[in-house]
Amino acid sequence: MLGQNIGETANGLAAAILQAAAAQPLYTGEVACFLAERRRLQPAAALDNGMSFFERAAGFDVSGLYAISLRGWEAAVPVHCDMETDGGGWTLLQQRRNDSQVVFARSLRQYEEGFGLTGNSHWLGLRAIAALTERGLHTLRVDMWADEHQYAEYDGFWISGADYVITVGKYCGTAGDGLYKQHGQKFVACGLNQASRRDKTAHGFQSKCQGGGWWDSQKTEDTNLNGVRNPNTGDLEAHWVTRNAHFVPRVSAMKIRPVQRIAIGK
Rank of each mutant, 00 (worst) to 15 (best):
A130C: 00
A189H: 03
S252E: 08
Y151M: 04
V102H: 03
E221V: 15
R106T: 12
G265Q: 07
R229Q: 10
G265T: 05
P258T: 14
I159V: 15
D177Q: 09
D216H: 09
L47N: 09
E148I: 03
M83C: 14
L70Q: 14
E113I: 08
N232W: 01
T223R: 08
H149P: 03
N244I: 05
S69R: 10
L13C: 02
G64E: 10
A67D: 06
C209T: 04
R39D: 03
R40F: 01
P231L: 11
K266D: 06
S217A: 14
W145Q: 15
L26S: 01
Q95W: 12
S196Q: 11
E221F: 11
V228Y: 08
E153L: 04
I166M: 13
D61I: 15
T223Q: 06
V103N: 11
T242L: 09
L18K: 13
N49K: 15
P78H: 08
G213D: 11
N193T: 08
N5A: 12
H239R: 15
T220Q: 10
R106M: 12
W123Y: 07
L2V: 13
Y27L: 09
N5P: 01
H122A: 04
R135E: 15
S52F: 00
L132E: 01
F54L: 12
A10L: 14
G87I: 13
C209Q: 06
T118A: 10
G184K: 12
Q150H: 00
L70W: 05
V79Y: 01
D163N: 13
V188G: 05
L140Y: 01
A36G: 15
F115Q: 10
E237N: 13
S100D: 13
A238I: 04
T133I: 15
D86L: 12
K170P: 10
Y111W: 05
I262G: 09
L108V: 12
E148A: 03
T9C: 05
H138L: 05
F60N: 11
V102Q: 09
L47A: 14
L137V: 08
N232L: 11
P249M: 08
G116M: 07
L41K: 10
I264H: 06
Q194N: 06
R40D: 11
F247W: 05
I159T: 06
G184N: 11
H239D: 07
L2G: 06
Q206L: 04
N5S: 09
P231M: 11
W123N: 12
Q4V: 01
H246M: 10
G173W: 00
K200E: 07
G161S: 04
G213V: 12
D86G: 05
L47F: 04
F115K: 11
G116I: 05
A46S: 15
L236F: 03
Q101V: 02
R97I: 01
R229G: 08
V241P: 09
S160T: 12
I17Y: 01
L65W: 00
